[in-house]
Design a protein around this nucleic acid. Structure first.
Lengths: 358, 358
DNA sequence: TTGAAAGCGCTAACAC
DNA sequence: GTGTTAGCGCTTTCAA
């Protein structure tokens, strides 16, 4: 019975082959040869042999021993959403360069799933967390904070929890979008958002409300229930638009609502921006290339990623020494990118002026 | 000096609190209470206390001991690409239900990065691999196969390596697309692809070529170099289209090339499908919603995900017993989804008929 | 039924 | 300078 399964090389194999001790190999491998005053000759031999046989230390054993995994757990809402995919990719790249690996998961805003995923990260002893908190995870995150494990939230935060976070000033974004639409002469602006209580959604709604109040205009808000099938959402938006034919502009509070909205608008046979002007939160390939191109409130994805990872790595560095760690809470500004979907056409503007002159 | 850091509960804490042995706790936790004939009363007490204190076993220690991590490493080209994001999400969901966790990474088709990521998975002792192989990873994958670690490739395969894989019949897809365009009366069809040697790209090109040869038509192929900046790719495609003004239709071999292509076509001021008909490989929100809607060769993402995970989990189950494992190699059919971008408009068709009648 | 004890592969005191 | 060895937290055989 000869097992053909090639067994993995161990540190003891290296040591016995080279006739040195395991400790010597370990120290060389961990760059502690100098400080342990191991001869250069020995160190070189070890390195050469390790390379030759392609020895890869068992990180499970290493982590068990050292208590460090060099893994960061990243929990986002939906990795297939371009906003999260982009931020995740940027974070991953920077973490990788600094010796950390990222493992990511999507919660799809499902509290149970979010808790399962965070539990998984705890079991696997990730060194730090980057979390887009779904509703219902406060308790678990509080537990992690109690254990002093570094954590940074982004996109939204938990008002009850004193955590590091990096968010975007959504209120400023929607406020600017509404003002822009008003300047273009659209006066009956609707706002379509989700029914979520999350801070970022509340802020975006608040920005719209403030703009309406400043101009003493009525608020027309649709809150779509989360977690429905796409068809149901499209139907809901379609019904809303149909029921509010007096509206001449609409702001969607997230990229996927806008996509459903475009589908609904298409079904209703409305033209953008002539029948209905449009602004979306979040940029997207689709919005840039759509005809007409869609005006968006763009989030600073690079800045979000950079700040998130910088804050986390700083914590990771400091958490060994018991240094006090002041809370890092950042609010970054979004950018209004004006495209055709929210701009009165010269022609139709002329028509309006004529109409107004009559 | 009182450390306030709450220490994690260990299995020994549970055991000593309940005044039973560590082994008893472990057995109960692993569902082996019955077969070890542990009294129901004890088992119940253990479970209750574990729940009460929220004990979470250290998976690092567990994995080190058992040699199983219950983690599957998933290496895709680009997690921000909707095709891969969708397949990854579907795979993750199914794996999760069956007790496996997925950790995913993007290679961005960079061989060095792909190798680093696979090395990371090896070091972390993932139980199995799902890989979209970038060029230059053959050697490493061969090494993993030698160790008998379960693996499934998808999207493309390595002709030199006898591996399980799930791919799509790209040749059939592009062939059907070309035939459809010809039936619509477009006769000068160009094909834009990447310079990659990967099997799926070669197959898509071959399908186009076969269709052209069957109709004794000239082939007009553009191979865009991979790894360029978006602007450079757009400029290249724009130059190609401009240099081949006689073409009345164009097939793009991947979703991102189509997106760049749409940008190029927009810059040139061409109308789709009047000036240029279009078919893209891969479906995408953008293509469905674009005006005109874009005809696509859609890949069966659900079937891909299901087959990939089924094959892998089967291997995972069998690899403990040394059962022989026949290679699973699947080729799934794509679907041509005809939309407006490739259909002669009634009006222009009439014009053509009149022209032909003259 | 239960408990003691031997590792899984590695790191890092602490000897020598 | 280098080797010995005690664990990291858990599973699992084997003895009681």
């Amino acid at each position: 019975m000869s097992e053909k399964v090639k067994k993995r090389t161990l540190i003891s194999d290296i040591a016995s082959h080279l006739e040195v001790s395991i400790a010597t190999v370990s120290l060389v491998l961990n760059g502690k040869a100098k400080q342990s005053r191991i001869s250069d000759a020995v160190a070189a031999r070890v390195l050469a042999y390790v390379k030759e046989v392609g020895y890869k230390p068992n990180q499970l054993a290493k982590s068990l021993r050292t208590g460090k995994t060099h893994v960061i757990g990243l929990v986002v809402e939906d990795i297939a959403n371009p906003f999260f995919a982009t931020v995740a990719a940027l974070i991953e790249r920077q973490a990788f360069e600094r010796g950390y690996r990222i493992i990511y998961c999507s919660t799809n805003n499902d509290p149970a799933r979010a808790r399962e995923l965070i539990t998984m990260f705890q079991e696997r002893h990730v060194d730090g967390y980057i979390v887009v908190p779904a509703e219902g995870v406060e308790g678990q995150l509080a537990e992690i904070l109690r254990e002093q494990t570094p954590m940074v939230l982004f996109d939204r935060y938990l008002p009850q929890q004193p955590t590091n976070h990096v968010v975007v000033d959504g209120a400023q974004g929607t406020h600017a979008a509404a003002r822009h639409l008003l300047e273009q002469g659209f006066s009956n602006i609707a706002f379509v958002t989700t029914s979520s209580e999350q801070t970022q959604m509340q802020a975006r709604l608040a920005g719209y409300r403030r703009a309406m109040q400043e101009h003493q205009l009525p608020e027309t808000v649709k809150q779509v229930a989360v977690g429905q099938e796409p068809e149901a959402v499209i139907a809901e938006i379609r019904a809303f638009i149909h029921a509010h034919r007096q509206c001449d502009a609409i702001i969607f509070s997230t990229n996927y609502l806008s996509i459903y909205g475009l589908e609904a608008i298409g079904q209703l046979g409305l033209r953008i921006p002539d029948d209905l002007a449009l602004v979306s939160y979040d940029d997207h390939d689709l919005f840039r290339l759509y005809t007409p191109a869609i005006t968006v409130i763009a989030q600073p994805v690079e800045a979000i990623a950079k700040n998130v990872i910088d804050i986390l790595l700083e914590e990771l560095k400091n958490c060994s020494d018991g240094a006090p760690r002041p809370l890092q809470q950042l609010m970054l500004p979004p950018t209004l990118v004006v495209r055709q979907s929210s701009v009165r056409k010269a022609a139709s503007k002329k028509v309006r002026q004529q109409e107004a002159a009559r």
